[in-house]
Design a protein around this nucleic acid. Structure first.
Lengths: 148, 148
DNA sequence: CAACATTAAATGTATGTACATATATTTGCA
DNA sequence: TGCAAATATATGTACATACATTTAATGTTG
């Protein structure tokens, strides 16, 4: 559905303004779908994001700093997201031996197991399925260009 | 900058997965810029969004339901965003005479004045300035197609 | 018209975002 | 060496998100 109809705004000042709104709206639309899918696994989208970063590092640990660098939303509070994951036994947190200011965060076996379950479900229901491969590449190029 | 470098993830499972992450990341990037600009006017992005909807209705009132319909994030809590705007005297809230369950929300003169100031600043610093008009149109088409 | 369902908004709770500040550790250098 | 600056993380506060529940008004129907 066209963005004009989605938010019931018949006109925009120009196509740039419209593009801006469209990115924000579409991101919210995707985020909501993700939230719903993740809910049945008892985690939120930022928690899922952190778990995937930790799996990428596994079996090496990550620090809070590394998580902040790689999170989609760099200003969010990684400490408290790790708190929640630790409560669910999906990650461990130990003082880094070589730098006692830092904290080594590791994904647990339970965390890896949970991610692999979610992977299967997400793979079965591919996102952006409406785009051809060429269109998906085009989209990536346009988005990268916006942030130049 | 390419999304691979932004979040330091050298590869993605496919170009669709990459596009998905790219939309979420770019939306966050835009949102952060907006937040910073709006901060000097003492309002947040959702509050700004609600004010613009109310200006679109002006001088007619809007209900909370209408706001929810038109907000970029439809699941957010419009009641409490209106609370904050009312405290700042940017909107008024009166019981709707024809349906005493509903509330008529109107933007005040101060609210209109604030929006016109922000408009000037935003117009001077156009968003998506790196795209040509043709590219912006292409982007809108791709995003609309994703949500089909 | 009374009882129940529906609708509109507000409120409660857990989590996350944004940002300032605090605490502990390490580093650099006078 | 000792002390200030820098670094790594945690904590506090205000606001927003997500969603369940509550309150009040309006519709509906036997």
């Amino acid at each position: 559905m066209k963005i004009e109809d989605e938010i019931k705004q018949p006109t925009f000042s120009d196509v740039y303004q419209k593009g801006l709104i469209n990115i924000l709206y579409t991101a919210g639309w995707i985020g909501q779908r993700n939230t719903i899918q993740l809910k049945q696994y008892g985690i939120t989208a930022p928690q899922f994001n952190v778990l995937r970063i930790l799996r990428g590092q596994h079996p090496k640990p990550a620090t809070v700093n590394l998580l902040i660098e790689r999170m989609l939303d760099k200003t969010s509070n990684a400490s408290r997201i790790v708190d929640k994951l630790e409560l669910k036994k999906l990650v461990t947190r130990t003082v880094c031996p070589s730098n006692r200011r830092a904290v080594d965060i590791r994904i647990t076996e339970a965390g890896l197991q949970l991610l692999s379950e979610i992977d299967i479900v997400f793979a079965q229901e591919p996102q952006l399925r409406n785009l051809t491969e060429a269109e998906a590449i085009q989209l990536n190029d346009l988005l990268d260009k916006i942030r130049d």
